[in-house]
Design a protein around this nucleic acid. Structure first.
Lengths: 198, 198
DNA sequence: ATGTAATGAACGAACGATCGTTCATCCGTA
DNA sequence: TACGGATGAACGATCGTTCGTTCATTACAT
């Protein structure tokens, strides 16, 4: 039994090494400009062996999208703190903006979005990741609305989406202009605070 | 004289036919997935002839980015109406959101952004397009701030950027989720109105 | 008016490189 | 010996680009 779990664990490690290598390649050159050989080489395995872990190149990107989803969970958890909704929202804005403006997130989400345009499977993964945050954020908005610390939202879900739109748009631009540096997010926080407070 | 201008005009038409074909291909399959042959075929010219008009594939994308810039001018002009800043802003939000959520703009701007990550020349074109709007929008914000119809902005340029971030993020998501349909933009208008009014 | 040289747009075969994928083969272990 | 993970040569396709060539048109000399 121990052998089996050792083996499966070794397989899992190998798989995550491939993912890490793929992420590195996509960051450097983009998804479409990265070849399978490049990924295999960076992962330290052979070309053919990669196909023992992933059925196709698209599979690799899909796996990355799934892993990105897991990285969103801390932010989702952060949003469940409903004690002081506005304070929670501001904390979320600041931390999430820092995360999304990181090179890894910014570049990967662009690559995934670009691929999603022409690839329904990737698109659905992309949207699944997003709706995870939208739901939690919407709950926070509604609580804060009931507590009178937020304004009245005609459509709290749409508002949640708009908050994410703003953060993601901000982070992407910040990454493209400053080149992977993230400065203060006070102005972003101000903007969203005014957009939501009563 | 007439002959010369006929020729240059014919050349210009040919060039714009190539651009139109390229745009069509990029919309269907994306920039990296589109081959030069495909563009030439759709434009109704030969492979080699395309290289008489563009030095490289990248040149074609760069030209598209330049043309996109020209399409932004109506919106820039719209922003120069400073009579009722909030009303002007709301009109801009509504019209610009509709434009950016169109298939052509949404897909092309993703492709261009994705390419910009790894290509400085494209990146600078991308940002030049944007700063055109930022400047006009910033002027409107400052006028409205002086007129007391907007709140006080700590950094009006940053605020202008954030407004564009929100619209573009909104439009991109709207396109990816609803699939090229754009519904009402009232909620978006509300969001930005609250974010800017005093 | 006629012949001739020059122009450059248009073409598509061909190039070398690289793509994603497959598969016959090898090697270490049990 | 038998087995399963690992290998990389090989495949057909396609990539962006180059280049030798054709051909209609223009400009000029006679």
């Amino acid at each position: 039994m121990g052998e089996v779990s050792d083996k499966t664990k070794a397989l899992g490690e190998r798989k995550s090494r491939i993912i890490a290598a793929a992420v590195g390649c996509f960051l450097e050159n983009g998804y479409n400009q990265t070849g399978i050989r490049e990924i295999a080489k960076k992962a330290g395995i052979s070309l053919g062996n990669l196909y023992n872990h992933f059925r196709s190149k698209e599979d690799v990107l899909a796996e990355i999208a799934v892993l990105e989803r897991e990285e969103l969970q801390p932010f989702q958890r952060l949003l469940t703190d409903h004690d002081d909704p506005m304070k929670t929202l501001m904390r979320f804005v600041s931390e999430f903006a820092n995360y999304t403006a990181s090179e890894e997130y910014a570049v990967l989400s662009i690559e995934i979005a670009a691929e999603a345009v022409h690839n329904p499977e990737i698109a659905s993964l992309f949207m699944a990741n997003r709706s995870l945050l939208v739901t939690s954020l919407q709950a926070l908005l509604e609580k804060g609305q009931a507590d009178k610390c937020f304004r009245n939202f005609a459509d709290s879900k749409q508002t949640a989406e708009l908050i994410l739109d703003t953060i993601e748009g901000y982070a992407l631009r910040e990454y493209l202009t400053t080149g992977r540096k993230i400065l203060g997010t006070e102005e972003l926080g101000n903007f969203i605070r005014h957009a939501t407070c009563r």
